[in-house]
Design a protein around this nucleic acid. Structure first.
Length: 285
DNA sequence: AGGATAGCCTGCGGGC
DNA sequence: TGCCCGCAGGCTATCC
């Protein structure tokens, strides 16, 4: 369940390990994990960073990009169960099943491998000649990054929508980076019921919601993200934000604010947890 | 055209 | 012990 905080924490932990390293070999074990524009079969220079030197890592929403100093870029999406980690040379490959791609890296101070594993294969890799073409082809459809979102931005994108706010928050075209966990957490923090319709929210509520989204995401990044089952960072370490979830996964348990029982409902085919008292369906006048 | 729905995919835990 | 089922939810494709 990597959402924005997990991907951003991953970016931060991988950056010092990868930047400056030469990609001296790429082993793509499952060709169909390379998505988007068709790649040539031999992974020529630049394709999936092959033969390049890594310059920097970017993130937008839940999407990660690794950019080489010759300009080529690789897009990565972790889907539901994707993991990406660095392993120093000499260590045996743990969890070798479902490993779809391995990059051999060499730098002045360290040799090792970057490993992409994704059992459910909802994620994938994309290869581009430039970061601009990745942005144009892949990222153009995404809304503003959730870490930077403001009330007016949210209202501009969603204010006229007839959808429930919970569904709208998960729409990456409107807001990039929020998934089921942080949607529930942000709605609870903003005291907004998940079934409220977008076109019925006030300017003040949009502002409150945007602030809640930013605050929840920033706190989660600081804690290294939420490890529910699969997530690990670039060094294989767990994230600790799941200990601080106030509603996600806590249906039937007491609300931490009012001690009432937290409700669970399926909204847009996804489980949602919220507090009927703290997040009223009809806001107080 | 916006919005709802089905489908992709594997692992895990509960019930029997 | 082992099997079956439901659930987890990222996204895209398709339909209404």
């Amino acid at each position: 369940m990597p959402e924005l905080p997990e991907v951003e924490h991953l970016r931060r932990t991988l950056e010092p390990l990868l930047v400056g390293a030469h990609v001296i070999g790429v082993q793509l074990r499952r060709r169909d994990m390379l998505r988007g524009p068709r790649a040539d079969r031999r992974l020529r220079h630049g394709c999936l960073l092959n033969g390049t030197r890594i310059a920097f890592l970017l993130r937008h929403g839940k999407h990660l990009a690794i950019v080489s100093d010759c300009g080529s870029a690789m897009g990565i999406h972790l889907g539901m169960s994707g993991r990406l980690w660095f392993q120093p040379q000499g260590e045996r490959l743990a969890m070798a099943d479902h490993v779809h791609c391995i990059w051999r890296l060499r730098s002045a101070h360290q040799h090792g491998r970057l490993i992409f594993r994704d059992p459910r294969r909802f994620g994938g890799l994309w290869s581009y000649d430039s970061i601009d073409s990745l942005r144009t082809d892949r990222w153009r459809r995404l809304g503003p990054d959730a870490l930077q979102v403001s009330g007016p931005m949210l209202e501009a994108h969603l204010g006229s929508s007839a959808r429930a706010i919970k569904n709208a928050l998960l729409d990456q075209r409107a807001l990039a980076g929020v998934g089921n966990i942080y949607a529930d957490e942000a709605l609870f923090t903003a005291a907004i019921h998940p079934l409220r319709l977008c076109n019925a929210l006030s300017g003040g509520e949009w502002k409150r919601l945007a602030a809640a989204v930013r605050r929840v995401l920033a706190a989660a990044i600081k804690a290294g993200g939420s490890t529910i089952r699969d997530y690990r960072d670039g060094n294989g370490e767990l994230g600790h934000y799941a200990d601080r979830h106030r509603v996600y996964g806590r249906g039937g348990q007491p609300c931490l604010l009012c001690r009432g029982v937290l409700s669970r409902a399926v909204i847009g085919q996804r489980s949602s947890v919220f507090c009927r008292q703290c997040q009223p369906a009809v806001p107080a006048a």
